[in-house]
Amino acid sequence: MPNETPYACLTPDLVLDAITACGLWPDGRLLALNSYENRVWQVGLEEGPPVIAKFYRPGRWSDAAILEEHAFAQELAEAELPVVAPVQFAERTLLHHDGYRYALSPRHGGRAPSLESADQLEWLGRLIARIHSVGARARFAHRGTIDRDTLIAQPMQAVLASSLLPSTLREHYRLAVERVDRLVAVRLEAVSPVRMLRLHGDCHPGNVLWTDIGPHFVDLDDARMGPAVQDLWMLAHDERAMEALLEGYASMRDFDHAELALIPALRAMRQVHYAGWIAARWHDPAFPAAFPFVAEPRWWEQHMTDLHEQADELE
């Protein structure tokens, strides 16, 4: 399968065949869900509710790393946490069909949480604390850590190797990222030692779905080792929201408030990673279609301005 077009062969017929290979009977209804890193489909069945089929991007995670994600999701579900875990078929959650790796999970709908509601934020804080209590039981062996190499060094190299970055901006970009990296290193050292645990890893509002009976968490594709605050800061748009999250969190688990000083570093690392992620995936036709603005010099100029603003905050 060519790396330049990793999903070129993933046709609707192949998706339906993969579902049939699990002993299920699709009724032909397919709905492509919003996902760029992987490909995710809602598949209607002849009997029972639809399922969600997630086809993993070739080459991103090893089988062992994907199985760790599945095991963590199952461990959380067994602890009665509202986390959507993959379904087993013949005692396997990681499935293979025609060169693709995929997993099936139940469909759970919902809406985005209200981040203006203190009650909902406290509820989320309690659930995240319980996720972290389970996450602290063991360590990931294959899924890596939230660190400067993963979120700064590797993305920077992807950008510098890409034609997206105008040649006239290359040195300016390098200096901006190196400044961020230097200040992030200082901040991490100042807050250390930080307790690392298994995290959701990408706990933004789009990965929390709210229903009439409460929230549930989806998409552990970025689960890694990291500090507890990583699963909180993307849900807190201001200090009041963070206070509500922490009030709920503290009712279930102790929180080290020194980790709050990591938020500017984590935010800066995410910004660097975002640009590198797009640059590394630009060969995938879905990315130019979804992010056409990244091909414009003014986007990179603004990106570097944003990085310097993050560096100023760290400084």
Rank of each mutant, 00 (worst) to 15 (best):
T5F: 12
C9Q: 06
L14H: 04
V15W: 00
L16Y: 05
D17Q: 14
T20R: 12
L24A: 09
W25T: 11
D27I: 11
A32G: 05
V40G: 02
V51H: 04
A53F: 02
A53T: 07
P58W: 04
D63N: 07
A65Y: 02
E69V: 13
A71N: 04
L76G: 02
A77C: 07
V84A: 00
P86T: 06
V87M: 11
T93Y: 04
R101T: 06
R107G: 03
R111L: 14
S114M: 11
Q120W: 10
W123Q: 15
G125L: 03
S133F: 02
A136I: 15
R139C: 14
F140G: 03
L151E: 01
I152L: 11
Q154R: 12
Q157A: 13
V159Y: 01
V159W: 11
S167V: 15
T168E: 15
T168Y: 07
T168C: 06
Y173C: 01
V177G: 01
R179H: 12
R179P: 01
D181L: 04
D181Q: 08
V184K: 00
L188M: 08
L188R: 02
P193E: 13
H200T: 02
G214H: 01
L220S: 10
D222K: 03
A228C: 05
V229I: 09
Q230K: 06
L232R: 00
W233I: 10
D238L: 13
A241G: 05
A244H: 01
Y249H: 03
F255E: 01
L260V: 12
P264Y: 10
P264R: 03
R270S: 15
W277D: 02
R281F: 09
P288S: 11
V294R: 02
E296Y: 05
E301W: 11
Q302W: 15
A311P: 00
